[in-house]
Simulated assay, not measured.
Amino acid sequence: MLLYSFVLIIGIILLALGLADLQRCRRLLRQGNWLVGIVVRLLEDQGADAKHYRPFFEIRTADNQLLTYEGIYGTSMRRWKPGQKAVFEYLPGQYPAVKMLSYWGIFWWPVLLLAIAADLIVVAAGYFLLSGYFQV
């Protein structure tokens, strides 16, 4: 029983953190500036099995400031080509100041936290709700 109490508490904490981070992401989308970035070159990384390619973007702000963004993940296929464009979210004074505007680029962390929290809460709540039926 102590284990399931601990699992429930961890689930509730992760739920609170996930909801708080979801609010932060929504605030970012409301208050940030959307900018267009252009791939200027592909960065090559030698992986264990093959080369991986990551895009390197240049982004101009409204006040003509040049920002750069390196793709975090590489792929063995050249998914990006020089000259291709992507939309970014820009919030001056915050780190990182530029985020690629995509579902997983913005919401991956709250989705992960909420998914783990839901699993933990369902398992612990199920134990407490059904434990009376299985007492020996």
Rank of each mutant, 00 (worst) to 15 (best):
Q84E: 15
G132Y: 11
A86M: 06
G37H: 08
A48F: 02
L29Y: 07
Y90P: 04
Y69M: 04
Y53M: 04
D45F: 00
W80T: 02
A20L: 13
A118N: 00
P82D: 09
L43Y: 01
I72V: 10
S102H: 03
L130N: 10
L130P: 01
G74E: 07
V87A: 10
V111T: 15
A125Q: 05
Q94V: 14
A50E: 13
I116M: 14
V123P: 04
W104G: 13
N64Y: 11
N33L: 11
A86F: 05
R30E: 14
R26G: 01
V111M: 10
D45W: 01
L113G: 03
R41K: 15
L66H: 04
M1W: 03
S76R: 11
A124M: 07
D63N: 13
R27C: 00
I38Y: 03
Y127R: 04
G18Y: 05
V39H: 01
L129S: 10
D49C: 00
D119T: 14
F88H: 11
G74S: 10
P96W: 08
Q135A: 15
W104L: 15
A97H: 07
Q84I: 05
L42N: 14
L3A: 12
Y4R: 14
V39W: 05
A20W: 01
D21L: 13
A124W: 06
E44W: 00
L17I: 07
D21F: 13
V123R: 15
R78A: 06
V136M: 05
G47K: 08
A48R: 06
V123W: 10
I13M: 12
Y4A: 04
Y4Q: 14
R79Q: 12
A124C: 12
L15E: 12
L17E: 06
K81I: 03
I12Y: 03
Y69K: 04
A118T: 14
I72D: 07
P82V: 07
A50C: 00
L14T: 06
D49P: 00
L22N: 09
G83Q: 03
W108F: 13
V122E: 04
Q31H: 09
L120M: 15
F107T: 11
L67F: 09
I9D: 01
V136Q: 05
